[in-house]
Each structure stands twice: as C-alpha cells, then as structure tokens.
C-alpha cells in the first residue's frame, strides 16, 4: 500500500497547476523511492518529468509499485478543498480503484477526506538520454516567466542564444522584434536573484513560446529555474524542489524549413 504525507498541501496543488495545461491524464508512479510522473502533451512536442522523492514526505511508505491513473482536472477539483498549509496524506491500496486524500489543518480540528476515482492509463514511457548540455543557465524563475510573457506578445517563437557575451532571448513578429540579454549576476545576500551561465560551446535554438509559457506555471514551486541547451536537442527546463525532488520540462526545438 501507499501512504505519503506532505507537510504542505501547497506542493501538490502547485505541481498539478504546473502540469495540467500540458497533460490532462497521467499515471503517478509510486515506488519506494517516491512518486514520479512522466507524460507528453498531445502533440508530442513537450514532456513533463516530475519526481517527488520519498524524503519530501514524512512518513512515506510504498511496499510495491503502484500506478495511480489520474485525471488532473478531477484531482485539481479535490485539491481545491485543501488549504495551502494543510497537511496532505495520500493513501492507496496495492491494486487501487481510488486514491484517498486527507487534508488536516495545522490545528488538527478539521479533517477532510476525499476518494478520487482512478483510471487505467496506457502511457508510453520515453527514455530520456543523459545529456552533457553545452549551455546551462540558472536564473530567477520569475524573470524567465516575464521574458516568456513579454516575448509571447510579439511572436510565437523565441530564439535562445548562449555565447560568451551571455544569454539572449530574441523574437520577431508582425509588429517588430525584441531581444533580451542576460549577463551573469551574483548577489551574495539574495542568491535567488542570481543569474549563472555555464557554457562549453555556443548554442542557438528556437522554441515555441506557447510551451515555455506553460512551463512557467511551475514558477511558484522554485525561486530559480535552470535552462539546459545543446544544439539540435530538446531544451530542458528544471525547477528544483527540496529534497532533490524536481519538475522538469522538455521541449523539442523548431527548425528552419
């Protein structure tokens, strides 16, 4: 059986908010190392890979592998009943028809319990190769969100270019063009504001802003975001969570005709 207790319901609420635009139904794969999820969007252009390590829960118990097939819209309806600060416990039997969610407020004078029906989801898992990315950029997640939003107003696509000058986000649309340059920045007192650029070779790739905008829905999960790029491979956008848990998005590049 599965029993996983989260100190703050906010984490699961934010995870579901972050992925439900991209994916409507997916398996939450539970095993003794934690709860994972891998799913592609319908067009097979973007993929979300999330893993909440067992250390992110207290306690965490999962005796055997359990796949919880969940409709994220339905899960979100149930999670709306949880306050951000509530303690959230997920429970399921070994071959479950439902997942049980319990929300307790901090003063333990309210306990809400919901059963969410599960579904059989036949999901293909893709092998994501380990990549030594040519460029890794860490920046405030709010900054990346703003860049994505601002450029979306001008164009459908952005070209992310990383060279020894720094990183640039450039786009061109009907009304004109835009370009945002970021340079390395270190703030010892506020490391969340740091911009870090590590590059082994110059990279330039073009991506659909629509998907980047979807990924940015995870901004509330982490103050920093990491973009990993190599020429001619999908972009990885990572939001690191506590206890080595993470939510990662992959996006296939666009190529010129």
């Amino acid at each position: 059986m599965l029993e996983a207790r989260l100190e703050q319901a906010a984490l699961l609420k934010k995870v579901v908010d972050a992925i439900k635009e991209l994916v409507q139904e997916c398996n939450f794969d539970c095993n003794d190392s934690g709860i994972g999820l891998q799913a592609m969007d319908n067009s097979h252009v973007a993929l979300v890979s999330m893993f909440l390590k067992s250390e992110s829960f207290s306690p965490f118990r999962c005796d055997r592998n359990i796949a919880l097939g969940i409709n994220l819209n339905a899960l979100q309806k149930v999670l709306r009943a949880a306050q951000n600060e509530d303690i959230l416990t997920l429970k399921a039997e070994d071959a479950p028809d439902v997942v049980n969610l319990v929300f307790e407020n901090a003063t333990a004078d309210r306990i809400s319990e919901y059963d969410l029906k599960l579904m059989d989801i036949d999901q293909e898992h893709l092998g994501i190769p380990d990549t030594d990315y040519a460029a890794q950029i860490s920046m405030p997640s709010s900054e990346f969100q703003r860049i994505t939003r601002d450029l979306s107003a001008i164009s459908e696509s952005v070209t992310i270019e990383c060279n020894k000058e720094g990183v640039s986000f450039a786009c061109e649309g009907d009304i004109g063009k835009g370009n945002i340059k970021l340079r390395q920045y270190t703030n010892v007192d506020k490391p969340a504001e740091n911009v870090e650029v590590n590059m082994t070779e110059p990279v330039a790739l073009t991506f659909a802003l629509k998907y980047l905008g979807n990924f940015c829905k995870a901004s509330g999960l982490s103050e920093q975001v990491r973009l990993c790029l190599s020429n001619e491979v999908p972009l990885m956008v990572e939001y690191a969570l506590a206890n080595n848990s993470y939510i990662r998005f992959y996006l296939a590049p666009k190529i010129g005709d």
């Binding site: 097979h44 993929l47 092998g127 190769p129 659909a208 491979v233 296939a252 666009k254």
Partner: peptide, 14 residues
Amino acid sequence: KSRQQTLGKFFGKP
C-alpha cells in the same frame, strides 16, 4: 518560417 519538431525523434523507448 520554422517547423516544430516532436520529441519522438530525440527520446526513444527505453
């Protein structure tokens, strides 16, 4: 004009 690629080209079945 540019063309959107899909992930299947890059990520295989494990």
